[in-house]
Amino acid sequence: MTAALSGRSTAVRLLAALVVAILGWVVPAAAHEVRPAYLQIDQTDDSHYTVLWKTPLLSGMPLPVVLRLPDDVKHVVEPLERPLPGSILQKRVISAPAGLAGRQIAFVGLQATITDVLVRVTWLDGRQASAIVRPSQPWYLVPAEQSFWSIAWDYTALGINHILYGLDHLLFVASLMLIVRDWRVLVKTITAFTIAHSVTLALATFGLVTLPPPPVEAMIALSILLVAAEAVRMERGKVSLTITWPWVVAFGFGLLHGFGFAGAMVDLGLPQRDVPLALLFFNVGVEIGQLMFIAAILAVACSARLIFTSGRSMRIAAAYGIGAIAAFWVVERLDAIFL
């Protein structure tokens, strides 16, 4: 029996080490490469439009997607490129005598990527429309106007995508779950985190409180590292504020994470006449995605308990893996601040 348990424990450690190694290889590269592209079209008179086309950088190279406008559209000002942190911005002025409503805009090459495109169109009379274009259908049919439900659906989907691709936010939630074992305390902790990041997301989106993104990103990575370290301390029998009152720490760091969500909202743009609506449903999408992640983690943990007996070793390995990734991000993001 002892030999069998020892063999299982060794297998668990090897499996955990393999998972950590894979995460360490994949996560740093993928953390910033799934941000959506962004197309903004603003009508300036009856037949002229200003077009902003922003594509993320993948391993230092622009996203291999080409913007294709309707055939009768003419360039008044040819595209001018400007590099931004993590992306390339093109600005051009076009002439469309027949207008753009009911016309198709294509994104050539999008189907070969995993990146979405957020599109926002503003007409001269203030009407707006926005949508998320997927690789499975790489074109956008410009509507005459947009309904309440269309905005709600688009920004809910955007929120879900943002949290599920936001590996730093997910790792913070995962590190909290390593500390919290009671489901009542888990509900309280996740609720505190949700309330906190919802508050700062709203404040930052409306411009009431702002923080520069690079330091915020570095502090988010540091928050993950600190909570992962606390998870290891807990397994060693230590006691601290985080271990005793995890919801307090979750609320404090949640305020910081809200600024990270707000940075994504600013990057992607908001419909000016429907900012509260878009903000509400973006936040709803974030919470849905967060609950999906928590449910998946709980399902995996329950399944692991049926197979393995060395739960403590798995928790320690997971904490060290999360901490190692977070430490890499801290160094990487601090380096980006001082470049």
Rank of each mutant, 00 (worst) to 15 (best):
G7D: 13
R8M: 13
R8E: 13
S9R: 14
T10D: 08
L15D: 08
A17Q: 08
A17Y: 06
V19F: 09
V20Q: 09
L23P: 06
W25F: 01
V26Q: 12
V27K: 10
A30R: 12
A31C: 09
H32W: 07
E33N: 11
L39W: 01
I41L: 06
D45Y: 05
D46L: 08
T50E: 15
K54L: 11
K54M: 05
L63K: 02
P64N: 08
V66T: 14
R68L: 05
P70F: 00
D71H: 10
V76M: 15
V77E: 15
E78A: 13
L80W: 07
R82N: 14
R82E: 13
L84K: 12
L84W: 07
I94A: 01
A98T: 14
G99P: 03
R103M: 08
Q104W: 11
L110Q: 06
I114D: 12
V119T: 06
V119I: 11
R120D: 02
W123T: 03
W123Q: 07
L124M: 05
S130Y: 02
E145T: 14
E145Y: 10
S147F: 15
F148R: 15
I151P: 03
A152V: 13
W153P: 08
W153A: 15
T156W: 03
T156Y: 09
L158R: 07
L158P: 09
G159L: 05
I163K: 00
L164H: 00
Y165R: 00
L167T: 00
D168G: 00
L171G: 10
L171F: 13
L176S: 08
L178R: 01
L178A: 06
W183V: 14
V185C: 07
V187W: 14
H197A: 00
V199F: 10
L201C: 03
A202I: 10
T205F: 00
L208R: 11
V209A: 12
V209R: 07
T210S: 15
P214A: 05
I220D: 02
A221Q: 07
A221H: 11
S223D: 11
I224E: 04
I224S: 01
L225D: 09
L225Y: 02
V227C: 09
A228I: 00
A228Y: 00
A231G: 02
E235C: 03
K238T: 04
K238I: 02
L241Y: 05
W245R: 14
W245Y: 14
W247S: 01
F251A: 04
F253I: 04
F253K: 06
G254I: 00
G254P: 01
L255C: 00
F259T: 01
G260R: 00
A262L: 05
A262K: 01
G263L: 05
A264R: 00
A264P: 02
M265G: 02
L268P: 04
L268A: 05
V275H: 03
V275G: 06
A278F: 03
F281A: 12
G285T: 08
E287V: 01
E287W: 00
Q290S: 07
Q290V: 12
F293M: 05
I294W: 03
A295R: 12
A296V: 14
I297F: 10
L298A: 13
A301K: 04
C302R: 15
S303D: 07
R305Q: 15
F308C: 06
T309W: 14
R312Y: 04
I316L: 04
I316R: 08
A318I: 09
A319C: 02
G323K: 06
G323P: 07
G323T: 11
A327T: 14
F328V: 06
W329H: 08
W329V: 07
R333I: 13
A336L: 11
L339R: 13
